[in-house]
């Protein structure tokens, strides 16, 4: 566990380093994720290695790590309530359109390229 966590923290440090050196407005962990992916790929990392075990353990509880920021809603309840309609409509509307555009474009292009997939099977 600690060995895997050390690697994950190490790649986060590397990501932060890259972000600072290149001076880009992307979070360090996102760059760390992409770098770790490349390394796992190149090293043909096995399914039972420490990075996989530590990573899976953290991802099982991903939702927990969002709680402290999410509780921030209590500070803004008044503001959000006052502008409830524009906030709800803009957030939900753009969410729905974004979801449909990404899903539709990806599957549409697959069909154009002649490689559509259907993983859900026949609904019968």
């Amino acid at each position: 566990m600690i060995r895997g966590l050390t690697w994950l923290l190490g790649f986060q440090v590397l990501g932060e380093l890259v972000v600072r050196v290149l001076d880009v407005a992307v979070p360090g962990p996102v760059v760390g994720m992409l770098l770790l992916f490349v390394v796992l790929r190149l090293s043909r990392y096995g399914d039972d290695g420490p990075i996989v075990r530590a990573g899976t353990a953290l991802l099982d509880h991903l939702q927990l790590f969002f709680v402290p920021a999410g509780v921030g809603i209590v500070v803004y309840l008044g503001l959000v309530g006052e502008h409830a309609l524009p906030i709800a409509a803009a957030a939900l509307g753009s969410w729905l359109l974004g979801l449909a555009v990404v899903g539709g474009t990806a599957t549409g292009l697959e069909r154009l390229l002649g490689k559509p997939r259907d993983d859900l099977g026949d609904p019968a």
């Binding site: 966590l5 994950l8 923290l9 790649f11 986060q12 990501g15 979070p27 360090g28 962990p29 996102v30 760390g32 994720m33 992409l34 770790l36 992916f37 796992l40 990075i51 996989v52 530590a54 990573g55 899976t56 953290l58 991802l59 509880h61 991903l62 927990l64 790590f65 969002f66 402290p68 920021a69």
Partner: peptide, 13 residues
Amino acid sequence: AFWLGPATVALAV
């Protein structure tokens, strides 16, 4: 909240 960072890195797995 700190663990959000390493968990994001872990999405590579």
